[in-house]
Design a protein around this nucleic acid. Structure first.
Ligand SMILES: NC(=O)c1ccc[n+]([C@@H]2O[C@H](COP(=O)([O-])OP(=O)(O)OC[C@H]3O[C@@H](n4cnc5c(N)ncnc54)[C@H](O)[C@@H]3O)[C@@H](O)[C@H]2O)c1
Ligand SMILES: NC(=O)c1ccc[n+]([C@@H]2O[C@H](COP(=O)([O-])OP(=O)(O)OC[C@H]3O[C@@H](n4cnc5c(N)ncnc54)[C@H](O)[C@@H]3O)[C@@H](O)[C@H]2O)c1
Lengths: 220, 220
DNA sequence: AAGTTATCGATAATTATTTATCGATAACTT
DNA sequence: AAGTTATCGATAAATAATTATCGATAACTT
């Protein structure tokens, strides 16, 4: 009997995974079959031991002197993140940012597929942004049910963020990717992940002001 | 003689500051003069002690039973981040995401002012995106020098990210807000802050996957 | 005026995350 | 075939960040 007591990876670990994935794709294109933690670390200015810990958290094992099998590693991370089979998502707010996201082809790599957009602006309803149809917001609950969509991407004005969130939750949305600067309140069981531009800019501003080089922020 | 031995705030602390700032603005509008760490914590689902530590790192003191003076606190954070006097920035890559950022009015609150955009696409050069003029990329060094701009916002294709970064550094850009998924290499002294959508999505995806106990890691 | 209490700040404890150490392994070299 | 070495994984140590404790303060209540 095999017991898989994988330690649940820490949040910082999860955040680093897509970076690894990107490199792995590159290596695959170059027909590299193995990659060492040393090499990965060098590419991203991390410590080899940290990379190894991250990968170990995924349950994969490396080979001494060779490193990790590229395809195996890729699969493991993809599977871990659930990026191998795409999730469908709704975009709520078809404005500037919403349009940019709608047109972003990169999400295909991230297992995300925006299937419909919603707005309250009559001039936008019925149009398409980058081939994604814009529906009136009221249609969302019905469509969520029929299409079995459980992910919402929030790109609407801050003022409307919380009330719309409440509505989304009511409509069965259980995961929200929040691009607004609002701290959303949602019931337990509903996942909210915020893309906090202000926080990121704060780090930049602070570094600029202090003229001290960025401390080990994750990624650069 | 007063010695200010302020502990340099940790990165997580800096990241939380804009959130506080947002609430403070709200309180100011409501003519609230004081706010307690308890209240702030409640609003953002943090611990009061953490809020107090964050604020203490800024060198401000609270009043027992009352809390912190709203305006004083606001000023302290604004000053700390350098958001009281706007920094001018260049936008490099006037595509989907670049346009969204160019049209974002919220940056005014963050002390950021996009003064020009740059692109290599001839059909974009000479046009304006949300009132910001688009210049040919080659013009950047000259304009950076003349306008004393030191911040660059990278919203161009991943493939061009590193070479363009090298050019920016050459042109005197010392701070880069990187929206591409590339880990940029830059000389010491150049600050790079990455907005990592993939990392954010990874966290969301992971949470979603973990919540669905359909198949629990049955083999690889 | 005296007692109560919400909140603060300093210090300590705990938890999370990163980094170091080191023996084991197996590919590579000679 | 034997020795060398890059790399792994397990365990331990160090560092970073969060959370708890508690006496001090001063606004509020009675
Ligand atoms: N544009 C950026 O670069 C940027 C950067 C950081 C954060 N944000 C945040 O993203 C959000 C959107 O920004 P934007 O620049 O795209 O704004 P925008 O005004 O261009 O777009 C907002 C869209 O939401 C729609 N909308 C309004 N109320 C709605 C509702 N109740 N339901 C559905 N749709 C509704 C509007 O009609 C509009 O189309 C804002 O919260 C903003 O703070 C934007
Ligand atoms: N659109 C999104 O929602 C989104 C999300 C996450 C990350 N990103 C990243 O942001 C970047 C831009 O994405 P986008 O969707 O806006 O792409 P886009 O293709 O719409 O825009 C890119 C722009 O950069 C210009 N460009 C190309 N090479 C250039 C160069 N060397 N110098 C200056 N400009 C150049 C192009 O002409 C184009 O106008 C990409 O790296 C992408 O991965 C975008």
């Amino acid at each position: 009997m095999i017991e898989k007591i994988l330690t649940t990876p820490s949040l910082p670990t999860v955040r680093r995974l897509p970076t690894y994935l990107r490199l792995l794709k590159e290596l695959q294109d170059e027909k590299q079959h193995y990659v060492s933690s040393t090499y990965i670390a060098e590419r991203f200015q991390l410590e080899p031991i940290q990379v190894r810990k991250d990968l170990a958290a995924m349950g994969i094992v490396g080979q001494p002197r060779l490193g990790f099998a590229v395809t195996e590693l890729t699969c493991a991370i993809m599977q871990f993140l659930g990026w191998n089979n795409a999730s469908e998502a709704f975009l709520i707010g078809a404005g500037n940012l919403g349009s940019a996201l709608a047109g972003y082809s990169g999400f295909a790599d991230y297992g995300l597929n925006i299937v419909a957009a919603f707005d309250v602006d009559k001039s936008k309803i019925g149009t398409r942004i980058h081939d994604i149809k814009v529906f009136p917001l009221q249609k969302l609950p019905d469509l969520a049910l029929r299409l079995h969509v459980h992910i919402g991407i929030l790109t609407l004005p801050a003022a409307a963020a919380q009330t719309t969130t409440d509505m989304l939750v009511q409509a069965g949305i259980t995961a929200i990717w929040n691009f607004t600067p609002v701290k959303l309140m949602a019931p337990k069981g509903v996942i909210v992940e915020k893309v906090d531009l202000a926080a990121s800019l704060a780090v930049l501003s602070r570094s600029v002001k202090e003229k001290l080089p960025l401390k080990i922020a994750q990624g650069a």
